[in-house]
Nucleic acid binder design. Structure first.
Lengths: 110, 110
DNA sequence: ACAACCTTTACACAAATGTGGTAATGTTGT
DNA sequence: ACAACATTACCACATTTGTGTAAAGGTTGT
């Protein structure tokens, strides 16, 4: 069918190896649908994902890990909030005292 | 002085090893100031950073890497924007065609 | 039917992470 | 002065990441 690729074809068209396409799927970064016989089927959307992922990686020297972690941040808003809080407080060291102070006050008020 | 700790004291007070405190500094996660003789000086702010980093890590099973990457995302808004774009388009596979279309239009307009 | 694909599973390996040591040397508090 | 700290610079090691390759077998197009 036009615009559908098996793993080898998608590899050739995207610049990744077939091996890496399977790895990317395992990491949850680019997950193709499957044919009735379990063949991986990549469409145009996945092709674009693959191409731009490759460029992102080169341009910013990212690990795949980092991209997977960014995906996790979107899936887990608590985690993102907790990390943002830590980073914000770290950026402004003085704020830690306030933060602890407020925590202390919360405990007293309870 | 009250509220200031050398690396060993900070380690004892935070639950990290002195070795790890040096490693955290090297990764840019918790960077103490230095005395005139280059001793690391941790204040209350850093102590709180260390304690809450430890808890963050346990609670969400984070790698230090991941925290360092989250810090990078705040420092590099382009990177964050690029990643968010990729993730948003990946979440909604159909949008890739539009995204490529818009990129094409941007290039033509330039 | 046969070549050329695909599947999963596994072994292999270099590089990086996270963590602990040690050694040689400088600093500090009593 | 001396014990108990600190510094940097290494070595070591298990685990993870990213990547290739191979085996044993199923699918597909001609």
């Amino acid at each position: 069918m036009a615009g559908t690729y098996t793993v080898g074809a998608a590899a050739a068209a995207s610049g990744w190896s077939a091996r890496m396409l399977r790895y990317l799927e395992q990491q949850g970064l680019v997950v193709p649908r499957r044919s009735a016989t379990c063949y991986r089927i990549y469409g145009l959307g996945e092709l674009n994902q693959l191409r731009s992922l490759k460029q992102l990686r080169r341009q910013y020297e990212l690990e795949l890990d980092d991209v997977a972690f960014a995906a996790r941040l979107r899936r887990e808003p608590d985690l993102k909030a907790a990390l943002d809080g830590w980073l914000a407080a770290s950026a402004d060291s003085g704020s830690w005292i306030d933060w602890e102070q407020r925590k202390h006050e919360r405990l007293l008020a309870a």
